[in-house]
Computed example of a mutant assay.
Amino acid sequence: MNKILVTGSNGQVGSELRELASAYPYDFFFTDRDSLDITNEQSIRDFIDIHNIDVIINCAAYTAVDKAESQQESADAVNNKAVGFLAQTSKDKNIKLIHISTDYVFDGKNYKPYTENDITSPSSIYGESKLNGEIIMKEINPKNSIIIRTSWVYSYFGNNFVKSMLKLGREKDELGVIFDQVGTPTYARDLAKTILEILPKIETSEVEIYNYSNEGVLSWYDFAKEIMKMTKLDCKINPIESKDYPTPVKRPHYSLLNKSKIKQKFNIEIPFWKDSLDACLKVLGERR
């Protein structure tokens, strides 16, 4: 039986992995920043030795995109340096490492879905720290290890766009939501399931990158409209431009990910975004 360390287990993907754990023949160790400091290499090595870990799923990340602009060191410590520690430990101890990355490694100026080989060009400190984590992992190159880039993650757990829309949809008669940022949401449970399904099939001499989100294409405006429709909330959604909702960090205008590589390599099917939203709203008890 594989002994799997899941870091960042209180986050959206980590929490979904915990929910799914009992259906898989693995021995899981779920950790957060209090039970395992991944910014300390010795702590990682000690934990792995004590528990005989042979797989790491790294869901830990500094994800406060706007705050990262003023907290560069904190973002770098978790998104870059800690990934290096995990990668080096994995290499030294022959451990399989699955690391979660982001569409923010791109600048969002593409006109067709991003492939894993497209040129990266992050436009934020957060995106830069995540890209640096990818780079250091590829340089160290632990065997049988992969990076999964994802986008627009939501879940029953944690803070996310779906839960924000549900809250605001009850409080307000109308909302302005951005229509000029296009991509695809990712239901964290779908990603967690995929990770556990492909885990035994990962065999590679060099770190491979894969894209994963749900199928389809939409804007945040479309997403919000569908949330209101499925839950029958009486809140009008108005389309607005990014310039009308300024944030410290400019979000990618286009972050559609091409998933052909992961589908072909592991022979998986990826759910359509509306079906996954429907599933999540049912879990939240909000489907009407």
Score class of each variant (00 low, 15 high):
Asp92Ala: 15
Lys93Trp: 12
Ile98Met: 08
Thr120Asp: 06
Ile147Gln: 03
Ser90Leu: 12
Ser123Ala: 10
Ser121Asn: 13
Tyr114Cys: 12
Tyr154Met: 09
Asn144Trp: 00
Ser124Ile: 01
His99Gly: 05
Lys167Pro: 07
Thr115Cys: 04
Glu134Gly: 03
Lys163Ser: 12
Lys112Asp: 12
Val153Gln: 03
Pro142Phe: 04
Ile125Trp: 00
Ser129Glu: 06
Met165Phe: 11
Phe106Pro: 01
Ser101Met: 02
Glu139Leu: 14
Thr102Val: 13
Phe157His: 15
Ser121Pro: 00
Tyr126Leu: 08
Lys112His: 13
Thr102His: 09
Thr120Phe: 08
Asp103Leu: 05
Thr115Ser: 10
Lys93Ala: 14
Tyr156Glu: 13
Phe161Gly: 01
Leu131Thr: 04
Ile125Glu: 02
Pro113Leu: 11
Asn132Asp: 13
Pro122Thr: 11
Ile95Cys: 01
Val162Pro: 03
Ser164Leu: 14
Phe157Asn: 11
Val105Gln: 01
Ser164Trp: 12
Thr115Phe: 03
Pro142Leu: 05
Gly169Ile: 05
Lys163Thr: 11
Thr115Gln: 04
Thr89Cys: 09
Gly158Pro: 02
Tyr114Gln: 11
Gly133Ala: 10
Leu166Gly: 04
Ser123Val: 10
Val153Thr: 11
Asn117Gly: 09
Ile98Gln: 02
Ile98Cys: 05
Ile146Glu: 00
Ser124Ala: 01
Lys112Trp: 12
Ile119Asp: 11
Asn144Tyr: 01
Glu128His: 10
Lys167Leu: 14
Gln88His: 14
Ile95Arg: 00
Met165Gln: 09
Ser155Gln: 00
Ser123Cys: 09
